[in-house]
Design a binder for these strands. Structure first.
Lengths: 248, 248
DNA sequence: CGACGTGTTGATTCCTGTCAATACTCGTGG
DNA sequence: CCACGAGTATTGACAGGAATCAACACGTCG
């Protein structure tokens, strides 16, 4: 496991950062990177560890460098909904807000590149390359959130599962896009995390995964590894139109 | 009705615009406003009229000046989900995207202040006052979308209705915040539009409204007008914690 | 008046949640 | 080495809430 954790010492230098060209700093010039380096520090969280509690004062904003984290909300009686899945290069926190609105929890071991909030907000004002990149990212997030609203509001349990798997598969195979060939993917989520994400119970998640397996749409190798014999079969189960619905 | 429609001629001048201090132009200096005036034009849409179809080329982005519009998504078999409710000062369209991703439909008579897309994108790059304001608005929208995800994924039909009414009531009474006194509100939505927003059928919406009425949580004056004898009663039905859940 | 859009209410079905029992996986420690 | 336990996952029985199908009421406009 530790092999996947970045060497924090080496990463003081932004130029060798794995998310350099995708994160909020993507558009920065060398002198702007230097300013960022002055206000940044790294933190690593263990799986299951809470990064931020809703209601906490936000001392920093951050980029996810590696790992997976969840943005969740909870109703007073305990019902929980994941409202965002944070992957490497995603941004955490909301500039201009004092107090966190959502819980942030590490799902896998997760390393953040944190920026002290106040200086970062100052940079936002003075550095269009940062604010413009953040704007792009926020608009992308907004589109993703809206896609997810369709899933939560209108899709059946089976369609939700098929959508989730196809999204993960799609992201895992961005490069090797051989459409009709078998693809195999690791689910970075437990059944419970999936249920939080999809607005279902974990029992229903489990049942629908079993059903998709029984119907030959997917195969299972262990609990977290999925084999997709024919992506088109899976996409046909998502309820989206044939272009795959542009989900993420 | 026409009394509510702004006089388009008078509004060539941004300084007298009703949304001047809330829309994407809120932070602009006089010279920047002038640049905006050069690329803007007004359009008015009748209730029910489609403003943009998903898949259309986006020729413009816009601010809602008056009225109400809906951002919706549709599954191939016709299931529909509203993913945004656009009120005066809200922004329509996504800079940097060629093709619209969602349908935009006028619910009431709606006037837009449209900006030709290409020149607007150029301004975004050159005018931090615009891009920073748009960033703020996008982050607010993102928070609202995430609140809505909790509602769609985890709330019961009754809680959804109570949440919707309390949000509308809250927005309608921003100034006169006498908490325990009766409030009355107009719902700007049909039952069908509510069902699209809440991820329910219109029958369920109707039934739950009747149930809340029977339980004395709300009163009805005609179909579109709601009286709330005690806001705390209504808030207790939303499922949120007692602070009202910060929904919008 | 009749037609249409809108809204209400009823009967029934079925999908998903709930409660509960049972496997499986992976460490730890005897 | 195996037993034990905690965390995770599967499966079953059952109940309940919302969807579906259908009939009917209300208001407006021609």
């Amino acid at each position: 496991m530790t092999a996947l954790v970045p060497d924090l010492e080496k990463m003081r230098d932004c130029t060798s950062c794995p998310i350099r060209h995708k994160a909020v700093c993507a558009k920065c010039e060398p002198d702007e990177l230097q300013r960022l380096e002055e206000i940044k520090y790294y933190r690593t969280f263990a799986p299951g560890q809470t990064i931020i509690w809703a209601g906490d004062r936000m001392e920093f904003v951050a980029s996810v460098v590696s790992g997976v984290a969840a943005l969740t909300q909870t109703l007073e009686d305990g019902r929980r909904q994941m409202v965002g899945l944070l992957l490497p290069s995603d941004f955490v926190g909301r500039p201009g807000r004092e107090v966190a609105k959502f819980d942030v929890t590490a799902i896998a071991e997760t390393t953040l590149c944190c920026f002290r909030r106040k200086p970062f907000e100052k940079m936002l004002e003075e550095t269009p390359n940062v604010s413009q990149r953040l704007l792009e990212m926020a608009l992308d997030e907004l589109d993703a959130a809206r896609e997810w609203m369709l899933l939560l509001g209108r899709k059946t349990a089976r369609e939700k599962i098929a959508s989730l798997i196809s999204i993960i598969a799609r992201r895992a195979t961005i490069n090797e896009r051989v459409y009709s060939e078998a693809v195999s993917v690791d689910l970075p989520l437990t059944r419970e995390a999936m249920s939080d994400y999809l607005g279902l119970t974990l029992e229903t998640v489990s049942r629908q995964i079993s059903a998709l397996k029984k119907d030959g749409v997917i195969g299972l190798k262990g609990n977290r590894h999925v084999v997709i014999p024919d992506m088109r079969l899976l996409l046909a189960e998502t309820g989206d139109d044939d272009d795959g619905g542009a989900l993420l």
